[in-house]
């Protein structure tokens, strides 16, 4: 099936009337892009109609409508209308190709539920479908945290996962041998998603899930290991509070840190009684290619 894509660029003032006009003529929906050009805000409206013989006529009607807005004293500039035909694509399926199984670290494999992968006996499989919670395993920050977690975790550790998102790090900790994991996220919408991922991976007996603000929701106790994949601006004020929650030689894994922020985080760790054991970068970071950003993960230990 073909679709007629009608794109209109107009002023913000005229955009509401134009979107209304399009919906009244059975547009299936509209994508709106605000663009600031030469100090004035213009709006690009991308609408779609099932292609039929009348589309040329409809576009002419639309141009006439824009002209009548101008006549009524409404600024419609630049009032550009373009028509393009687009082929139906497999939109509800094609995104899946971006989620092949991923090998992370030495033993971890992250795969969506629709993939029939059979892991090697030495591998640890985490099933996770991407959706509305960060932590699909595709971002450098998650990969770094997983690599450091795999390297640093000891059997029967009790782990705190701060900013759990999809639950990926807590699930990995559980599968890597943690006795218990306390996973926390501030965002209430991610909690049911993390819960369902925990069930999918059959680690519900190990992980407790909390909604709230970082360390504040945890009962005062000493963890052997805390992992936090958040952003530097959240990590920096959290570091001074970590010693209260860590055993005397407890370990801290931090991710979500850009290369240029690493020295700041290292200094903060050192000021708060931590020793940095490792600053890790991905070997072949896809992220660098995609966005020009380069991330590090840091493993630190209490005591000097």
């Amino acid at each position: 099936m073909k679709w007629a894509q009608v794109t209109i660029t107009t002023s913000q003032e005229a955009s509401d009337a134009v979107t209304n006009y399009l919906f009244e003529r059975d547009a299936t929906g509209i994508e709106i892009r605000d663009t600031l050009s030469s100090n004035s805000l213009s709006v690009t409206l991308i609408s779609y109609f099932p292609t039929d013989d009348l589309i040329g006529e409809q576009v002419q009607d639309l141009r006439d409508f824009l002209a009548s807005l101008t006549d009524a004293g409404i600024d419609t500039h630049p009032a550009q209308v373009t028509l393009r035909s687009i082929e139906e694509d497999n939109w509800s399926e094609q995104w899946r190709s971006a989620f092949p199984p991923q090998k992370i670290g030495k033993r971890l494999v992250i795969a969506p539920t629709w993939d029939a992968i059979v892991p090697e006996p030495s591998e640890i499989l985490i099933r996770l479908d991407p959706g509305m919670a960060f932590g699909t395993g595709q971002h450098a920050t998650t990969q770094l945290a997983l690599e450091l977690l795999e390297a640093a975790i000891e059997d029967s550790d009790v782990v705190a996962d701060i900013g759990t998102g999809s639950g990926i790090l807590g699930i990995a900790a559980a599968k890597l041998g943690a006795k218990r994991v306390d996973a926390v996220d501030l965002d209430a919408t991610t909690i049911p998603i993390a819960q369902s991922n925990i069930q999918l991976n059959e680690v519900g007996s190990v992980i407790r899930l909390y909604q709230g603000d970082g360390l504040n929701v945890l009962e005062k106790q000493k963890y052997p290991l805390i992992v936090a994949n958040i952003l530097t601006k959240v990590i920096l004020p959290m570091i001074p509070r970590c010693p209260e929650f860590l055993e005397p030689v407890g370990r801290l894994i931090l991710s979500g840190i850009l290369v240029q922020e690493a020295s700041q985080v290292e200094a903060q760790l050192s000021e708060n009684g931590f020793r940095v054991l490792e600053v890790r970068q991905l070997k072949e970071s896809q992220e660098v290619a995609q966005t020009g950003e380069n991330w590090v993960g840091i493993l630190a230990q209490m005591g000097r």
């Binding site: 679709w3 894509q5 299936t28 929906g29 509209i30 994508e31 991308i46 609408s47 779609y48 687009i86 139906e88 694509d89 939109w91 509800s92 094609q94 995104w95």
Partner: peptide, 9 residues
């Protein structure tokens, strides 16, 4: 279908 598919793809 459009606009959801092509805009989010």
């Amino acid at each position: 279908n459009p606009p959801v598919g092509p805009s989010l793809a």
